[in-house]
Design a protein around this nucleic acid. Structure first.
Length: 297
DNA sequence: ATCCAGGTACCCA
DNA sequence: TGGGTACATGGA
């Protein structure tokens, strides 16, 4: 195992939080060490305070993968500034709970293709189900790497099977989405890479054109696959958190019974600023601990 | 057993 | 645009 001594902008960093907060589904903690696959390489990780022990990856790749080149302190400062500007108050106690619980959480630079497939898989499922589904897909269609580990399936692997075969991986009605999206990616292999050069708006439109990709999945791929930090995925948790903690959003949309997806996402961007996607992820990571009625706090 | 989950596609007024 | 519903599956 090699060692990365964290310093400067690399701090704070919390490996556990980053790998367990629902942005990736392929990492397992075994005997205190995280084991996963990046670019068809088995990677082992371990953290003790400001030291990260790693194997199977270069230091530069490690820093890039976990966005350790980004200053979290600066980003949090920007978010707090935006909150103050919007609310006129000097602090948001509710958000600070999530900020404290989520200290060191990093947005991972996930492979866009993997993010796209994983979040198509994620729809209308809980995280344990999603994890199982993706594990099955990798075992069935991924490259064996030894030690019962597999690479993430290539577009060709998913597009060259039959959609009904994909159902054996507990994908349900998502099987045809996976198949058709894989076929489209295979048809134009450069498309996903090209999205990096687009504006958020254009990138989102492109992603929305894939079968099985709606607003939520698109925003997850934008945030986790392309590092558009202004993308705000709105799931049932975020909807509950935002509408209960920030009830003035209701006042902004008085005639509707429920806020729309865009109402919530736009509010978050106004309130938290350009890093609203990161703020969203802090709230999501802390969803079970936040003082909401359903959490019995 | 029943409800719910990192939703989307499709249809209708 | 806004509101309804079907969709497969497994976890709690």
């Amino acid at each position: 195992m090699k060692t990365l001594k964290l310093s400067g902008d690399q701090l704070p960093f919390c490996l556990d939080l980053t790998l367990a907060c629902g942005q990736v589904f392929r990492w397992k903690k075994v005997d205190g060490s995280w084991i996963g696959v990046i670019h068809d390489q088995i990677v082992i990780l371990n953290q003790e305070n400001d030291k990260v022990y790693y194997d199977g990856i270069l230091e530069s790749e490690l820093i890039r993968y976990f966005s350790l080149d980004i200053s979290l302190k600066q980003m949090m400062e920007n978010i707090r500034e935006s909150i103050s500007k919007y609310s006129g108050k000097d602090s948001d106690n509710f958000f600070e709970i999530a900020a404290m619980l989520g200290e060191g959480l990093r947005i991972i630079r996930q492979d866009p293709w993997e993010a796209l497939m994983c979040f198509i898989c994620s729809q209308n499922s809980n995280i344990p189900s999603i994890t199982k589904r993706i594990t099955l897909l990798c075992e069935q269609y991924g490259t064996p790497l030894g030690n019962r580990m597999y690479g993430f399936p290539k577009p060709s692997a998913l597009a060259s099977t039959h959609p009904d075969e994909l159902r054996s991986c507990s994908t349900g009605y998502r099987a045809s989405y996976l198949f058709e999206t894989a076929a489209r990616v295979l048809e134009k292999p450069e498309t996903l890479k090209r999205i990096f050069q687009l504006s958020v708006k254009e990138a989102r439109l492109e992603l929305l054109s894939y079968p099985g990709v709606g607003p939520k999945v698109a925003d997850c791929v934008l945030l986790f696959g392309y590092q558009f930090y202004e993308a705000v995925p709105v799931d049932v948790w975020i909807r509950t958190i935002i509408t209960s903690a920030y009830p003035d959003i209701q006042i902004k949309t008085p005639r509707k019974k429920e806020c729309s997806y865009d109402d919530i996402a736009n509010f978050c961007r106004q309130y938290f600023g350009p890093n609203a996607g990161y703020a969203q992820q802090l709230l999501f990571a802390a969803r079970q601990e936040l003082p909401l009625q359903q959490n019995k706090n």
